[in-house]
Design a protein around this nucleic acid. Structure first.
Ligand SMILES: [Mn+2]
Ligand SMILES: [Mn+2]
Ligand SMILES: [Zn+2]
Ligand SMILES: [Zn+2]
Lengths: 133, 133
DNA sequence: TTAAATAATAGTAACTATTACTATTATTAA
DNA sequence: TTAATAATAGTAATAGTTACTATTATTTAA
């Protein structure tokens, strides 16, 4: 079951870098422009393999397709509930906060936390009603 | 568009209270035992209405059906990645931690956070390898 | 360099969760 | 009571994703 290289795999990585937190379908459409015979199944299979290997992140959204992120550095995501744009948090989020929450969760449930899905929703600056910060 | 009462609606609320963070399908099966003619569409429609009204919570899980929770008090959820059981955090999670994270996210993205999905994954006490806490 | 072993692919079918549609029924307010 | 219409059961349709399969491409080692 050793992993092999393929042209398609390279194109998927390139598309991920070019697009902004794309869905599988968006990756597929992007690649189809230059390589029309690529199959959607190939895109899904590779994204799943990469996410399983920890090479990329999978971002689940309620009632919407998963999105993928080649940036595996610890960061979080905010979606604007008005325009749907997705924003990255940067490294200024204190990692200590996450640890504290993990500990609190472990203390009251007895579950050893290994990962967490944290997706925020709100109104982005551009969508904020004019004259408000 | 004023909301009306119905037998089915009552049964859905009862099933939610009886079951533990059930999916729509689980609510449907539970009710079918005593009211076989209920329709899955009715279960979905009512769960959606209730969640929209803030009367219940919707818990999205990546690649799995949404689950519903009649407990709308602020609390979080941990899923055991071994056995799949879902655990509630209790009121001992300091709400201040959440506020701090919201603020950090707002500071670096400019998005005014209105809600967040926080679902933790780990290994529960029962699934922990024997001889470990 | 071939050649055998098999991972990866394209194309398509199938599946799961959820929503949409529609004719009928039940609830409500006057 | 009855008129207006929200809610329902049953079913069809949709979206996202996975499964299947015959073929192709990559890899390893003779
Ligand atoms: Mn990101
Ligand atoms: Mn709960
Ligand atoms: Zn916006
Ligand atoms: Zn467990």
């Amino acid at each position: 079951m050793t992993r092999r290289h393929s042209t398609q795999k390279g194109m998927i990585k390139d598309a991920l870098a070019r697009l902004d937190h794309p869905t599988a379908a968006e990756v597929y459409e992007e690649i189809r422009k230059i390589y029309p015979q690529i199959s959607l199944g190939t895109v899904y299979r590779n994204l799943n393999l990469m996410a399983g290997d920890g090479e990329i992140l999978r971002l689940p959204f309620s009632g919407a397709p998963d999105r993928f992120d080649p940036n595996v550095r610890e960061h979080f995501h905010v979606m604007c509930s008005r325009c749907g744009r997705i924003f990255d948090t940067n490294h200024t989020i204190p990692p200590g906060l996450i640890t504290q929450i993990d500990h609190a969760v472990e203390a009251c449930t007895g579950v050893k936390v290994e990962s967490r899905v944290m997706i925020f929703k709100g109104i982005c600056a551009a969508c904020q009603p004019a004259g408000q910060t």
